[in-house]
């Protein structure tokens, strides 16, 4: 069973998430160095973080008629929502806020990135970021419903919306095993709401960076951090939802959970380099015609199992 954490967990959870996001970024940098023919080593891992002093130093971008208030609000929303989403994830039996509707909370926080990215695209008042912001909405319409059904599959299987209950209800058999469609759709959703790799459509290179193209300095740092934080949060959430949480032989729950989270994160980082960008104009039709029916059928499976229990 999970219990609500003490006050200090409120600080520990974001710190752990940040560390996880940093690891993902470092791993990505190492893979990039290997592909580019540079020496692979600890130096390559640290390279991306030299951007931090650079970002803090840089002058903020000035544009003719930006809506600075909305721009800032949008940029900050992305990482803040990522951190808030982790409040319901149990880690080694402790949750910061053990909400009875944890799954819905996670989903709601994830939807906040819709608003955040659209605002980040609207704020600078320039064509490419705006197209990027709208692109995220198109992408959102494609990935969101399958993702919701994937989350519902796990919740139906456990007959609870509490994340801790979902983790404990998978004794013996992980949901990833008998709900593979939901698991894969969920992982695709993670890449989509962190707009990385194949789902980097809103920040595509063909738009010179899309929503990110006019941000500089601290704004840019925050937005980029938001991407990796979301990737880390999605990987952390995958473990209680589909991989049995901290259950496992021999090691304490927190250790198992850390191992599983890192494995999911590694798989995601590998996947995001293996695929080209998937444009929403193609993906929407695929999501609605193929993925939504598939995930609905997937929800039926745990529902039927529950009825026969």
């Amino acid at each position: 069973m999970t219990e609500a954490g003490a006050w200090w967990t409120l600080l520990a959870a974001p710190a752990m998430l940040l560390a996880l996001a940093g690891l993902a970024a470092a791993g990505h940098a190492v893979l990039a160095a290997r592909d580019a023919g540079r020496p692979v080593g600890p130096a390559a891992m640290v390279r991306p973080f030299t951007g931090v002093p650079r970002a803090l130093l840089a002058q903020p971008r000035r544009l003719p008629a930006p809506d600075v208030l909305l721009w800032r609000a949008g940029v900050i929303t992305v990482p803040v929502a990522a951190v808030l989403s982790t409040l319901v994830i149990p880690f080694g039996g402790v949750t910061v806020a053990d909400l009875s509707v944890g799954v819905v909370w996670f989903n709601a926080m994830e939807v906040l990135t819709w608003a955040g990215l659209w605002l980040a695209g609207w704020g600078p008042d320039a064509a490419f970021p705006l197209v990027g912001g709208y692109r995220f909405l198109a992408q959102g319409l494609a990935y969101e419903l399958p993702l919701m059904f994937a989350l519902i599959s796990a919740a139906t299987g456990a007959q609870s919306l509490r994340v801790g209950d979902i983790a404990t209800s998978q004794q013996g058999l992980w949901y990833a095993v008998w709900m593979p469609v939901a698991f894969i759709v969920y992982l695709a959703g993670v890449l989509a709401f962190s707009f990385l790799g194949p789902f980097a459509y809103p920040a595509g290179r063909d738009l010179a960076g899309g929503v990110m193209s006019e941000t500089s300095g601290a704004d840019r740092l925050v937005l980029r951090a938001g991407r990796w934080l979301w990737l880390a949060a999605g990987a952390a959430m995958a473990v209680p939802l589909f991989l049995g949480g901290g259950a496992g032989p021999g090691m304490p729950a927190w250790a198992w959970q850390a191992v599983k989270t890192l494995l999911v994160l590694a798989a995601l980082v590998l996947a995001l380099r293996r695929l080209p960008m998937i444009r929403a104009d193609r993906y929407v039709e695929f999501a609605w015609v193929v993925l939504i029916p598939l995930t609905i059928v997937q929800v039926l499976v745990p529902a039927l199992v529950d009825l026969n229990r």
């Binding site: 160095a33 023919g37 540079r38 971008r61 290179r205 010179a208």
Partner: peptide, 16 residues
């Protein structure tokens, strides 16, 4: 730039 790992920016806002 590839060998030095200096990223190629796509817009002026991202560049030094």
């Amino acid at each position: 730039l590839r060998l030095r790992d200096w990223p190629l920016a796509a817009t002026p806002a991202q560049a030094d």
